[in-house]
């Protein structure tokens, strides 16, 4: 906490950069710039493809039933390490259900039957891992920001505390590091000990991401993390996601196709519980192979 001044200065620079980024990405949005942006993305993707060989998640023939409803049908997909994978598709297509199978959040619901395999670094998460250990490695950010009704500090320190870290200095360090990582340290460092429920929606969502980072996960699952936020906060979360993929693997469910296009490396298109197409984001948005994908991304249904 002693380096606060230093951080402030750094953060100011970051904030200017942030503003430029927002304007940039809005400009990049128009049709002409989109193409050059995409080519650049492909370049990055190719570069990293040489390094990344082993998938973080490999899912094989996953089927999920809610009672008699067949919610996921023969899902097979590999999720690359240090990348952003977007799951898109119309409401009720199974993308959120699929996301929840990755950290077994669907264990909390009754009447769910699963077969097939979900492997994290080669280990079957349903057969050879307990849900608690899995969720410490695979964190989750929800649609509605859901800070606990505690102080900002206690929210971020929550994960480390339940894992047995009690030393104040260690906790201080984690809280500052995580809040800095999500870019809200300087905004809220003066109100660390006030209730997190008093923050704005965008701040709350970034706090929730910081809270997830505090347990040092390997994967972060995001379930429509910006659907309850305004455009500026959305941009900030998107920039954050792009930054976080250097250290973490991110899987994001989104209804916003521009968002998937802007931030993801690969995109999976879900329809009625099936993956219709899974490819690099450029291919999905520029040359979709399936007619249904093309119709969906061009806004003709969904």
């Amino acid at each position: 906490m002693k380096h606060a001044d230093n951080t402030v200065r750094k953060w100011d620079e970051y904030m200017i950069q942030d503003a430029i980024n927002i304007i940039d990405s809005q400009l990049a949005h128009s049709a002409e710039t989109n193409r050059s942006q995409s080519e650049e993305d492909t370049g990055i993707y190719n570069k990293s493809e040489n390094v990344i060989k082993i998938p973080k998640f490999s899912v094989n023939d996953l089927n999920l039933h809610y009672g008699s409803f067949h919610a996921l049908k023969d899902i097979s997909i590999n999720v690359d390490k240090n990348s952003i994978t977007a799951l898109i598709g119309p409401s009720g297509c199974g993308k959120s259900t699929f996301l929840k199978t990755l950290n077994r959040m669907n264990d909390l619901e009754t009447g769910v039957a699963i077969d097939g395999s979900v492997r994290l670094d080669g280990t079957d998460v349903y057969k050879d891992m307990n849900a608690i250990a899995l969720r410490q490695r695979v964190g989750m950010v929800f649609q509605q920001p859901n800070p606990f009704p505690k102080s900002v500090y206690d929210n971020v320190a929550y994960g480390p505390r339940i894992r047995g870290i009690k030393k104040r200095s260690e906790l201080n360090e984690i809280v500052e590091r995580c809040l800095t990582e999500v870019g809200i340290w300087s905004e809220i460092k003066d109100r660390l000990f006030k209730s997190a429920l008093g923050l704005s929606g965008g701040q709350q969502q970034r706090l929730c991401i910081a809270r997830t980072l505090a347990v040092a996960p390997e994967v972060i699952l995001m379930d429509e993390p910006t659907s309850a936020l305004d455009p500026i906060s959305t941009m900030k979360i998107e920039d954050l996601a792009m930054k976080l993929k250097e250290k973490y693997t991110i899987v994001i469910v989104t209804h916003n196709m521009q968002q998937a296009n802007r931030i993801s490396d690969k995109t999976a298109f879900f329809l009625l519980g099936e993956i219709i197409e899974y490819d690099t984001t450029n291919n999905i948005f520029l040359n979709p192979k399936n007619k249904k994908t093309e119709e969906y991304i061009s806004g003709r249904f969904g």
Binding site: M105, I132, M140, P147
Partner: peptide, 12 residues
């Protein structure tokens, strides 16, 4: 969401 948030972080 309180419960989900906490369980989602690997709390028992």
């Amino acid at each position: 969401s309180y419960k989900k948030g906490s369980l989602g972080m690997g709390a028992t």
